[in-house]
Measured scan of single mutants.
Amino acid sequence: KRPMNAFMVWSKIERRKIMEQSPDMHNAEISKRLGKRWKMLKDSEKIPFIREAERLRLKHMADYPDYK
């Protein structure tokens, strides 16, 4: 399994928030909203998620050195 990228790290957190607020919303609609919101974020707002994704990538490389 591949490590999460910055969007996936961010969307995992945000998806929970949306599901708590709107439990009946369909997954496809949540995904569309998340995509739009991610694109609207400033680069500076994405930095913590980019850093976390990089940390996960490095950990994945250490844990699975033969992964292609």
Rank of each mutant, 00 (worst) to 15 (best):
K1S: 12
K1N: 13
K1R: 06
K1G: 14
K1Y: 13
R2A: 09
R2E: 10
R2V: 14
R2C: 13
P3E: 13
P3S: 14
P3R: 06
M4F: 09
M4P: 11
M4H: 06
M4L: 09
M4V: 12
M4C: 01
M4K: 04
M4Q: 08
M4S: 07
M4T: 10
N5W: 05
N5T: 14
N5V: 05
N5D: 14
N5G: 06
N5A: 05
A6E: 07
A6R: 02
A6F: 00
A6N: 00
A6D: 02
A6S: 04
A6V: 03
F7T: 01
F7N: 01
F7R: 05
F7K: 01
F7W: 12
M8Q: 15
M8P: 04
M8L: 12
M8W: 05
V9P: 00
V9I: 13
V9H: 06
V9A: 03
W10R: 00
W10P: 04
S11P: 04
S11V: 04
S11Q: 14
S11E: 15
K12T: 10
K12A: 14
K12L: 12
K12M: 12
K12I: 11
I13S: 06
I13P: 03
I13T: 10
E14S: 05
E14H: 04
E14G: 02
R15T: 11
R15I: 08
R15S: 10
R15A: 09
R15N: 05
R16L: 12
R16E: 13
R16F: 07
R16G: 11
R16P: 11
K17G: 02
K17W: 00
I18A: 05
I18K: 01
I18M: 07
I18G: 02
I18L: 09
I18S: 02
M19E: 11
M19W: 02
M19N: 06
M19I: 11
M19S: 08
E20N: 08
E20S: 07
E20M: 02
E20T: 09
Q21W: 07
Q21M: 07
Q21N: 10
Q21D: 08
Q21V: 09
S22I: 04
S22E: 10
S22V: 05
S22K: 07
S22H: 13
P23T: 04
P23W: 00
P23C: 02
P23M: 01
D24E: 10
D24H: 08
D24S: 08
D24P: 01
D24F: 06
D24Q: 10
H26L: 10
H26E: 15
H26W: 06
H26C: 15
H26Q: 13
H26V: 07
H26T: 15
H26Y: 06
H26D: 15
H26I: 08
N27Y: 09
N27R: 07
N27T: 12
N27I: 06
N27V: 09
A28N: 08
A28L: 09
A28E: 11
A28P: 04
A28M: 05
A28Y: 07
A28C: 08
A28I: 09
A28S: 13
A28F: 05
E29S: 03
E29T: 02
E29W: 01
E29V: 03
E29H: 03
I30N: 03
I30A: 05
I30P: 02
I30M: 02
I30K: 00
I30H: 02
I30Q: 01
I30S: 03
S31K: 11
S31Y: 08
S31R: 07
K32T: 07
K32L: 09
K32C: 06
R33G: 04
R33H: 12
R33A: 15
R33Y: 14
R33D: 14
L34W: 00
L34E: 00
L34C: 05
L34T: 02
L34K: 00
L34I: 04
G35P: 08
G35W: 09
K36I: 15
K36H: 12
R37F: 02
R37I: 10
R37G: 13
R37S: 11
R37W: 06
R37Q: 13
R37V: 08
W38G: 01
W38E: 00
W38R: 03
W38F: 01
W38N: 00
K39N: 12
K39H: 05
K39V: 06
K39W: 00
K39S: 10
M40F: 06
M40A: 14
M40P: 02
L41T: 02
L41V: 05
L41P: 00
L41Y: 02
K42H: 08
K42N: 13
D43M: 11
D43R: 05
D43Q: 10
D43K: 09
D43E: 10
D43G: 06
D43H: 10
S44T: 09
S44A: 12
S44C: 11
S44N: 07
S44L: 04
E45I: 07
E45W: 05
E45M: 07
E45P: 00
E45R: 00
K46A: 01
K46S: 00
I47L: 14
I47A: 13
I47W: 09
I47S: 08
I47G: 08
P48W: 04
P48L: 04
P48Y: 05
F49V: 03
F49W: 08
F49A: 02
F49R: 02
F49K: 01
F49N: 01
I50D: 06
I50P: 03
I50Y: 12
I50C: 04
I50Q: 12
R51I: 11
R51P: 05
R51L: 10
R51Q: 15
E52P: 00
E52M: 06
E52G: 02
E52S: 01
A53Q: 03
A53M: 07
A53W: 00
A53K: 00
A53S: 05
A53R: 02
E54Q: 07
E54S: 03
E54N: 08
E54T: 03
E54I: 02
E54A: 06
R55V: 07
R55Q: 12
R55W: 08
L56H: 09
L56K: 03
L56F: 06
L56Q: 08
L56S: 09
L56M: 13
R57E: 15
R57V: 06
R57D: 10
R57H: 10
R57P: 06
R57S: 12
R57T: 12
L58M: 10
L58C: 10
L58V: 11
L58Q: 13
L58G: 11
L58R: 10
K59T: 13
K59V: 13
K59I: 11
K59L: 14
H60S: 12
H60V: 12
H60F: 11
H60P: 10
M61D: 13
M61F: 07
M61Y: 11
M61P: 12
M61L: 11
A62W: 06
A62S: 14
A62I: 09
A62R: 09
A62Y: 10
A62G: 13
P65A: 11
P65C: 12
P65L: 10
D66Q: 10
D66P: 08
D66Y: 07
D66R: 06
Y67G: 14
Y67R: 10
Y67A: 14
Y67V: 09
K68T: 10
K68N: 14
K68L: 03
